[in-house]
């Protein structure tokens, strides 16, 4: 066991948590989107780290897919955010709560 290996995992865990925390406390939908990116990056880091420790290339390949997913997610997410903002400019996530109960 190398200390640095643990370092990668710890780093990614913290990064993931920061992303999750950000999504829970920030109200700007765009920032929330960025927080999701943070979380996905943390996962990427985990994958590559695990791949390295396992001596397996698959970890890196998977990251490619995550990247594609992240890109697609951003496109869809931004599309929706734009559509919402068109109806109500400057709306935050807390402002859109017509639906409840």
């Amino acid at each position: 066991m190398r200390g640095i290996d643990a370092g990668y995992l710890v780093l990614s865990a913290i990064l993931f948590s920061i992303g999750a925390f950000g999504l829970l406390v920030r109200r700007n939908p765009l920032v929330m989107l960025m927080c999701v990116e943070l979380m996905l990056n943390a996962v990427n880091l985990t994958f590559v780290a695990f791949g390295m420790m396992l001596g397996d290339i698959a970890g890196q390949v998977i990251v490619m897919f995550v990247l594609v997913v992240a890109a697609a997610e951003v496109v869809v997410g931004l599309g929706i955010v734009v559509a919402v903002s068109r109806r109500k400019p400057g709306a935050t996530a807390d402002d859109i709560r017509v639906l409840r109960g």
Binding site: F16, G19, A20, L23, P29, M32, L33, V36, M39, L40, A42, V43, T46, F47, F50, G51, M53, L54, A58, G59, I62, V66, V69, E73, V76, G77, I80, V81, A83, V84, R87, A93, I96, R97, V98, L99
Partner: peptide, 29 residues
């Protein structure tokens, strides 16, 4: 309401798929 639904679904969906993916990473390890 439709956009609101879309946005909520999307934000929460992305959030939970991040968890899901992290789970896959753990299993991978």
């Amino acid at each position: 309401e439709s956009q609101e639904a879309g946005l909520k679904y999307f934000v929460l969906g992305a959030f939970s798929s991040a968890f899901f993916l992290y789970g896959i990473a753990m299993v991978y390890g």
